[in-house]
């Protein structure tokens, strides 16, 4: 009974291989899934604006399905369901001589999280695109720019201002949602803790231990996010606006100041 400080400290702060592997897994899975989510979200957002009804339909269906079903079910569906559907196992324990950490369960969970995330990112990117004044696209078109160039060079860079804050929140969520991967046997932080108390029968200490790590990760990310948003210049005041792009692209303060203010 009671809280055993020694067990807590031992689990949490003894720097050992399994802990490092679990932390790496959590972070790597979150980053990869988020990246996949951004890419799929962009495709779905653009697809949703397509003149082609098939592309538009597929994009809509994708968002509808993955936002409308539980992500935990999606993970299990992919990991257990896909092999039975295909008749072979695309998710073996290990891929050739890749590190064991990046095995089939890791891949399945990362894919499922990323595909799920894409559905949410699509809505965020869509809102970002819609936030850009329609005169911008018209000006670009009137100069002879193709729809692709108009999007990539004129619309999306301006949409970033609206996309980045919710994107940051999505990644905060993703860091925590990776814990669902434990159900298919990915040894991320949660499964690490479960493995521990499976032997010690003291669940409280390691579970609080991994909370420490989740808090550490989300707090660090919060700091990064704050800086990023500051650079994107939430305020639209004249001088801030001026340095907007320069400040996004340079890390230092006092980014190049351009032109004279009238």
């Amino acid at each position: 009974m009671g809280f055993q400080m020694k067990e807590f400290l031992d689990f949490t702060f003894t720097w050992r291989e399994v802990l490092i592997a679990a932390l790496t897994t959590t972070i790597l899975m979150a980053v990869l899934a988020q990246l996949l989510g951004v890419v799929l979200g962009l495709l779905a957002a653009l697809g949703g604006r397509s003149r082609n009804m098939v592309i538009k339909g597929v994009s809509g269906l994708y968002v509808w399905f993955f936002r409308g079903t539980p992500v935990l079910v999606q993970i299990v569906l992919l990991y257990y369901g896909l092999p039975s559907l295909l008749g072979f196992d695309p998710f073996p324990k290990q891929y050739g001589n890749l590190p064991e950490l990046i095995g089939g369960a890791f891949l399945a969970a990362t894919l499922a999280l990323g595909i799920n995330e894409g559905a949410y990112m699509s809505e965020i990117i869509r809102a970002g695109i819609l936030s850009v004044d329609s005169g911008q696209a018209e000006a670009a078109k009137s100069l002879g720019m193709t729809p692709g160039k108009t999007m990539s060079r004129i619309i999306l860079p301006q949409a970033l201002r609206v996309i980045v804050p919710p994107l940051g929140n999505e990644f905060n969520n993703m860091l925590k949602t990776t814990s669902l991967a434990s159900v298919v046997g990915v040894t991320e932080l949660l499964l690490l803790a479960e493995n521990r108390f499976g032997g010690t029968f003291r669940p409280f200490e390691p579970l609080i231990g991994i909370c420490v790590y989740y808090l550490l990760l989300t707090t660090l990310w919060g700091l990064v996010q704050g800086r990023l948003e500051k650079k994107l210049g939430a305020g639209l005041n004249r001088n801030e606006e001026a340095g907007f792009w320069a400040r996004l692209l340079t890390t230092s303060r006092g980014a190049p100041h351009s032109g004279g203010v009238r």
């Binding site: 018209e138 000006a139 670009a140 002879g144 301006q158 792009w245």
Partner: peptide
């Protein structure tokens, strides 16, 4: 897009690209 290259347009509200000098 190609046809529009030959036709310049100036808008009431300028529509300059705000992220570019």
């Amino acid at each position: 897009a190609k046809q529009r290259q030959e036709i310049g347009m100036v808008f009431q509200r300028f529509n300059l690209f705000p992220h570019k000098t």
